[in-house]
Design a protein around this nucleic acid. Structure first.
Lengths: 147, 147
DNA sequence: CTTGACCTTCCCATCATTGGAAGCACTAAC
DNA sequence: GTTAGTGCTTCCAATGATGGGAAGGTCAAG
């Protein structure tokens, strides 16, 4: 199976498969004589594992750990659970940051007529002290962009 | 006021102030004879505006629009509200994606003993079909990393 | 033997932000 | 007046995960 087929089978783009190989998340694929990467069912299985972990928001670093735990048949389930719980906590932290932003914005928006008149509490809220020059939401949550 | 003071007064790092100038989010600061940037109260006010918008998760592009709207005294409040509501929708989309991840992970974690034994439903959930090879959470929500 | 789809590597862009290096400017103390 | 320390300048690079694209080699079908 070449990289395109492996991509389709796993749901990981060819770009990312090569990238994951480069950063050593996965072992270098075997090659044909003409340097084409070849993948077997095991490789696809690993890629699927990666895709699922990625879809759950794990970082590449975390995925490295997860893959190691996956392959280590003698690992303690508590090791995996610990990582998962930490990640859940991280996700909840982000959710709280987003909720705080949403709440503030909704509050501002609810006071805005939204008509042709120029006065707008939203933009005034940005311009005037909206909580003063305190650490700010992003500092409280360690987030700034929450992409 | 030099850039360091403006930074302290606004809560925007000096690095970012220079960056915002470079990408034309703000107008180039006046300079002293020795090329030091000088800022006045108006500039600090603008920087505070930027910081608040940023803390609410607006992108630089959106902030450009917001700043233009802020300065345009004849804008319609509906223009501002529209932008705010779009951003709220975006935030809620991200929140939903995070909630979906959290839910799945919590479900998996709840079935994991978390002891010294190796069997772990979490990692098995990653390895085995956890919803099959469908578009996946990130595709459903247009997210992959949700930083 | 050509065509088109695929593969290879390499470099660049994204977004917002931080870090650092090299060099110049200012301030305070001696 | 020199020196130490801090702060400013510009420039370049890295982050993390991903996509885009160019230039060139390979493969299968017609």
């Amino acid at each position: 199976m070449n990289i395109g087929e492996a991509s389709r089978a796993s749901g990981v783009s060819t770009k990312m498969i090569r990238y994951y190989e480069q950063i050593k998340l996965i072992t270098p694929a075997h090659r044909t004589e003409s340097s084409y990467r070849i993948y077997g069912d095991n490789d696809v299985h690993t890629l699927q594992f990666i895709r699922r972990a990625r879809d759950l928001g794990f970082s590449v670093e975390q995925m490295k750990t997860l893959l190691a735990l996956w392959r280590d048949r003698s690992r303690a389930s508590s090791d995996v659970k610990k990582l998962a719980l930490e990640h859940i906590a991280e996700l909840e932290r982000k959710a709280a940051a987003i909720a705080a932003m949403t709440k503030t914005l909704k509050h501002l928006a609810s006071h805005c007529h939204g008509d042709e008149r120029p006065d707008c509490p939203i933009i005034e809220g940005f311009a005037d002290t909206l909580g003063d020059t305190d650490p700010g939401i992003e500092a409280k949550f360690g987030l700034t962009g929450v992409k």
